[in-house]
């Protein structure tokens, strides 16, 4: 069984109780990154520090001291490239993935810039309606571009891990799949996904209950909830791209011109990548 990783806010008291666990520690304060790293590294395995930046990416002061820290930065806005220019040298040396919100059109360009400069990056889905065309353009660039560029998530994850016989959940990229990640807050309330944590839909309370969560029926229901759209005969049930979307946009109004087009193209791209990866030339007959 794969050990579950706990996604937790930075709280020294809470961390004291999570010794020996593998952690993703969240903070919105860039000045605490080194402190968190020092604190967590003593008794835990640090999977990553997630900085939810309240300021634009280009305004963050990236430090060379972050060099060996697994970092994941979420920012709603790319900001001005001019501000980023003096930081590119440092950024290229960090163990970092940068995620920008889909809410701003400029962020799509920002991701292309970062990727072309060799900085691993990705898009996270914001609150505003998704610009499916821009998303599709970015996906095509991420998967088909022949130039050297850093991975763009979640496209790179799906392309690299896609298997024709399996469903794939790109939420792993966002530490948001209960088979690997559990989310908890400072009150030790535990949820199976980030949305449940925000909506106070907890599966249990108390650090000591973590081990037993996977044996709970609610856990199993949650893991299998992807099939709900099938049972409800939602439009998603008939979508060929369900295997890589898993009904995440089942609430979309105009699926046929939006998510279905995008995810069908995304599936084609994933299959193309899969075939290329697995095609090692003509197979020789076996001796």
């Amino acid at each position: 069984m794969i050990e579950q990783i706990l996604v937790t806010p930075y709280n020294e008291e809470l961390l004291e109780k999570l010794k020996q666990k593998t952690l993703v520690v969240k903070t919105d304060d860039q000045d605490k990154i080194q402190l968190i790293h020092r604190g967590v590294s003593k008794h835990n395995k640090l999977h990553a520090i997630q900085l939810n930046s309240p300021i634009a990416l280009s305004s963050i002061t990236f430090k060379k001291e972050w060099k060996n820290i697994p970092l994941c930065v979420y920012s709603s806005e790319f900001g001005g490239f001019k501000n980023l220019i003096p930081k590119l040298d440092i950024l290229n040396k960090l163990n970092i993935r940068i995620f920008l919100s889909s809410d701003l059109k400029e962020n799509f360009t920002g991701i292309r810039i970062l990727s072309s400069l060799g900085i691993a990056c990705g898009l996270f889905f914001g609150d505003r309606p998704i610009d499916w065309e821009s998303l599709n353009d970015l996906m095509h660039h991420a998967i088909y571009s022949q130039t050297n560029h850093a991975p763009i998530e979640p496209f790179s994850y799906v392309a690299s891990n896609y298997d024709t016989s399996e469903y794939i959940d790109y939420n792993f990229v966002y530490f948001n799949n209960a088979t690997r990640y559990l989310h908890l807050n400072e009150k030790e309330q535990i949820a199976l996904c980030y949305e449940d944590l925000i909506n106070r839909n907890f599966i249990s309370t108390g650090v000591e209950s973590i081990e037993s969560i996977i044996h709970k029926q609610e856990y199993e229901y949650h893991i299998n909830s992807r099939y709900d759209v099938m049972l409800s005969m939602n439009e998603c049930a008939f979508c060929p791209a369900f295997r890589i979307c898993l009904g995440k946009f089942s609430e979309e109004d105009d699926k046929q011109n939006g998510c279905q087009v995008f995810f069908s193209d995304f599936l084609d791209a994933a299959e193309h990548f899969y075939k290329r990866k697995n095609n090692t030339g003509n197979k020789l007959w076996q001796l």
Binding site: G80, F81, K82, I85, L88, I113, S116, L117
Partner: peptide, 9 residues
């Protein structure tokens, strides 16, 4: 910005 970007590439 464009010149800096191209040089960075």
């Amino acid at each position: 910005e464009f010149v800096s970007y191209l040089i960075a590439r």
